[in-house]
Simulated scan of single mutants.
Amino acid sequence: MHARRLRVSLKGWGGVGAMAVVCALAVLFVLLLPLAPSHGGGKGGPDTGGPGATWGEQARAAEECTAPEKQTLSPSPADGPTIDEIKSREGEKRKLIVGVDQNSYRWGYRDPNSGGDAELEGFDIDLVHRIAEDILGDPDAVQFKAIPTDQRIPAIQDGRVDMVVRTMTINCARLQDVAFSAPYFRTGQQLLAPKSSPITGYNDTLADKEICTATGSTAFSTLEQDRKDGRLVASADLRTTVPNQLDCLVRLQLGEVDAVVTDGALAASQAAQDPTVQLKGDAFTTEYYGVAMKKDADDLVRRVNQILVEFRQDTEDGWQASYEQWLSATLGDDSAKSEPPAPQYLRKS
């Protein structure tokens, strides 16, 4: 990839040991959090609903939605009002403002072994640089904003970011609040638990077990619905929700919860950070990551979809190269199961 880095002062750490320090810092953050958002916050939390939309309205709209990964606009390289506004920023402000994660190993994280200041990098970060290069002609013309899971949608709606590239699943409920690009990655919900745990997968071994999910995440809404529908054992405890997915790993390490449910791609990275935990069973859903933008940013959605077409086709510096660099170590050399389907563009306006 092109030389591109965001630097912060974070020196002298090494490998997995550094991630352990990050987790330790996250423990302090978790313990200082208000109680309200950390338990039960997933119900109608900030990442699941927008201003003026009631839960009932969203539920009805979601029921009418099918194949959410196809509900996007056709690609176009043309500029429009949203892109013109980004390009009109002057001086140091002439940057693409993107919400990302800085704690998801291999996706968006700070590398403690970068030979100096820690660098923000990973699969999602590669994609951000690609988008910035296409729109502004400079892969480094990016202002990164680290945002927690439960603030992804509010950050877009409030105009704090132009887009979010943060392992964000395309689903019907979120389509009521933001627009998505075509998929750029395939994954599914999966369980993470200690190796010594009697939990074997998404089955009855979860009876009376406390499961941690991120507030506003697909994991929480899936588990809640599955329990209502009888696909998840009724005694599974879903009360523990946290702002950031990494906080779940910390709680698992502290023995405060029995299991974590998150996207399999993220769970594999967390298992790589901590050799005492492992994935339990197969993924029990199929989901797709997309770039999230404002609902009325049609020109930006079309442009990102055009970039994704080219990103997939680029055999030297594109999707496959990023997969091999960042994800093959945790997800395996065969990228076929992670490749998104051929895009379909069913949204007309």
Rank of each mutant, 00 (worst) to 15 (best):
T169W: 03
N103A: 11
Q102E: 13
S114L: 04
A179F: 05
V142W: 10
A141N: 07
A179L: 04
L206A: 00
S197E: 11
P198L: 03
Y109G: 13
V142R: 04
G108Y: 03
V164C: 04
L175M: 12
T200H: 12
D204F: 11
I131R: 01
V98M: 11
E133Y: 09
P194H: 14
K195P: 00
Y109P: 10
D162V: 03
L191G: 06
S197D: 13
F180P: 02
N103C: 11
N103L: 14
D126M: 13
A155V: 05
I156K: 03
K145A: 12
M168Y: 13
L192Y: 07
Q157A: 06
D138I: 07
N113I: 14
I147T: 04
D117L: 13
E133Q: 14
D162Y: 09
D138G: 02
R106F: 12
R130F: 15
V161T: 01
G201F: 12
G115E: 11
I131G: 07
A132I: 00
Q102D: 15
V178L: 09
S181I: 11
P148Q: 00
V142T: 07
A173Q: 12
P154R: 05
L191S: 05
A132S: 04
S104H: 08
A155H: 05
W107L: 10
Y184W: 01
Y184G: 00
K195E: 01
W107I: 13
E133M: 10
E121W: 13
Y109C: 14
N171F: 06
S114V: 10
F123W: 15
S104G: 01
V178Q: 07
T169D: 09
F123P: 14
R106D: 10
P154D: 05
A182M: 09
G137N: 00
A118D: 15
T149P: 01
Q157N: 02
V161C: 00
S197W: 12
D158T: 07
G116S: 11
A141G: 06
G122S: 01
W107F: 15
L127A: 01
G115N: 05
L191I: 15
D117E: 14
M168I: 07
F180N: 01
I135P: 03
D126G: 13
S181K: 08
V100D: 02
N171T: 06
M168V: 05
D101V: 11
A141K: 04
S196K: 13
Y202L: 00
D124A: 04
L136S: 01
I199L: 02
I135M: 11
G188I: 06
D126E: 15
N171E: 03
